[in-house]
Design a protein around this nucleic acid. Structure first.
Lengths: 109, 109
DNA sequence: ATCGTCCATCGGCGATAGACGATGGACGGT
DNA sequence: ACCGTCCATCGTCTATCGCCGATGGACGAT
């Protein structure tokens, strides 16, 4: 056990934060769109999403701040791209959580 | 491709809903606690969480409604237990999403 | 019958999320 | 120089979240 009582709390907060970034349909859709064309401008996403430009921009910002999407300013055209590693990392974190919950291979009867 | 345009939207909503249930530190902690002792009363969680009983009860309800925790009323003592399958299912969904985002082994130039 | 415990639910409150339109800056084209 | 496009940010509005205390129902014990 490398987990102290407080670090478990911190862990929970950390994973909760990342999952929160993913817990919105629009953001999931955005991720799919981004990955579909490897790199997207905001406009591209807006066209596809049926949301106002400002709203999409905000969602993108949230994804960037969560570290799931990388942003690169290309002149006036913004370029957003999925950070595959980070995304995989979140998935791994969740898997880890699930495993820590599921196995419990300690007999107790 | 077995995905229609609308079903993709529905997919996003479905996974977002489940992830939302997981995107709160307290609920993560609750899951850990539940799995630690295989089955918990509300009281047990309250003692451990440093939150009001009503608050914990609400979080438990959210987890139950998300299908991640099963509820069984045992007399006056409530019994909550992690639904390992459901939890694994969410993890699988996320993994699937990540994979659908990452690989993209289609050359396009 | 009465009390104590456990718990779900209600009502209220402050904070936050999510949506939008408007604004203004940066840039390309004419 | 003047538009048109793209985009981030701001301000605003509403709905929802997260928390709490209070309430009341169900049950066990005395």
């Amino acid at each position: 056990m490398t987990e102290s009582p407080e670090s478990r709390c911190a862990d929970s907060r950390a994973i909760a934060l990342r999952l929160a970034a993913l817990s919105h349909p629009a953001r999931i859709e955005i991720l799919k769109r981004l990955s579909a064309s490897s790199c997207c401008s905001c406009r591209e996403v807006v066209d596809h999403l049926d949301l106002a430009q400002s709203t999409v921009s905000q969602h993108l910002k949230i994804l960037v701040e969560a570290g799931l999407v990388r942003f690169e300013a290309d002149r006036q055209r913004s370029r957003y791209a999925v950070d595959h590693n980070a995304l995989a990392g979140v998935s791994a974190l969740l898997t880890e959580l699930v495993n820590s919950c599921c196995p419990a291979p300690k007999r107790q009867d």
